[in-house]
Design a binder for these strands. Structure first.
Lengths: 208, 208
DNA sequence: TAATTCCTCCCCTTTTTACATGATTTTTTA
DNA sequence: TAAAAAATCATGTAAAAAGGGGAGGAATTA
């Protein structure tokens, strides 16, 4: 039985590239593609593929949120995150939101095929580079807690403590504590350096 | 006479996508591909294509520098910048370094063909979105002065205004003024967002 | 030359952060 | 289950940044 593969990516070339790669594979069936979250959801109402290859960087709704939504509505569908960015935070979030795998866009045909075949069995597939990234980060003494990561991102968004407190439904002093811990953990003198180091350690990304 | 097209991109899927798109075009000849700057330069020593589609975001050497180098060695080759990022600074730098065009990765087959046919005539091709970006004022006023760049970098280093003032031999109020102008120019609410946006606009780099 | 931009400096007020210090409750892990 | 880690909240002070003005001289450009 062929694996029905659907792809969501806002880049036409990537869609075309994957289609071309999988074209002559006999155990792969091309289910179709979408170039944004909306048309992906519309497609799924009519037809369910086995696996969705999902770009995590898209305008409007990003792949991380879309992944969560799709998984909530259609738990049987396996999702593989697709990205240019080999960043721990992205990989983690994608997996947290129910993805079964993560593949970089510079992956070879073999890697993609292996990923597809692995996830339909209910297993997890992380591309070699993704695993390396995950390990290198956990080895480094820079393990931020869930809350710290949340606060860090909101700080980078330009939010002040009171706004973050409101957003997270906690006290301002709590946010202040997280902020202090962030400064200490990253060994930063102030927010400016904190954000710079966060980029350096790939804790936040340039997705605007 | 068919146009010989070569592509440099570190993403296998993009290479495959473009090849697939151009496969059956009779006036297009596939010259080959490279996945990094080094093998691109190696290829060019043996064979010269008419047009190079060049990704601007690559590890090691980026497309902007590679463009300059290739154009210096082989002025006859036309280069089209290829990118996910629709950013004024990128487009500008690419054109300054001798590129003949700029196409976004979500471009259609028709757009790519038009770009190829335009540049071999010696003309310039910018994709619709790229033109729009160049014209938009929001990014246009992102030209920082010499002093502003200096101050921005020192802020990112974690230095406070008084330290920056000492380092630059100016008054603290002067540094403060530059800081205010930076916030205004980048439309940031505070330093945190300023640094994030500085990364986004490639005004500072991750060199620790 | 006139206009514009850049760099420099100053005033003031309010807001926000940074730092110290301590503590309770919940959750995770060994 | 006991220990460790994480998340929560607090009080207080000092430092720094943000935001609002204005203004003069130098350099560059039209």
């Amino acid at each position: 039985m062929a694996i029905k593969v659907f792809i969501v990516d806002d880049h036409y070339m990537v869609i075309e590239g994957i289609r071309s790669l999988l074209q002559n594979e006999k155990n792969i069936e091309w289910a179709g593609h979408a170039m944004n979250a909306g048309s992906c959801l519309a497609f799924l109402q009519k037809q369910l593929p086995d696996v969705i290859l999902m770009d995590i960087n898209m305008p409007e709704k990003n792949g991380i949120d879309l992944c969560k939504e799709v998984k909530a509505k259609y738990p049987a569908v396996f999702i593989i995150g697709l990205s240019t960015f080999n960043q721990q935070s992205f990989i983690e979030k994608m997996m947290e939101n129910g993805a079964s795998g993560y593949v970089l866009k510079n992956a070879s045909k073999e890697e993609i095929l292996e990923a597809l075949q692995t996830v339909v069995k209910g297993k997890t597939y992380l591309s070699f580079d993704a695993i390396k990234t995950m390990k290198s980060k956990s080895e480094a003494n820079l393990i931020l807690t869930r809350r710290e990561k949340e606060v860090l991102e909101l700080i980078a968004e330009g939010m002040i403590n009171s706004e973050i407190a409101t957003k997270l439904f906690v006290s301002v002093t709590t946010v202040d504590t997280h902020r202090k811990n962030l400064l200490a953990k990253l060994n930063a003198r102030n927010v400016a350096e904190l954000i710079k180091l966060a980029f350096y350690h790939q804790l936040i990304a340039v997705n605007h």
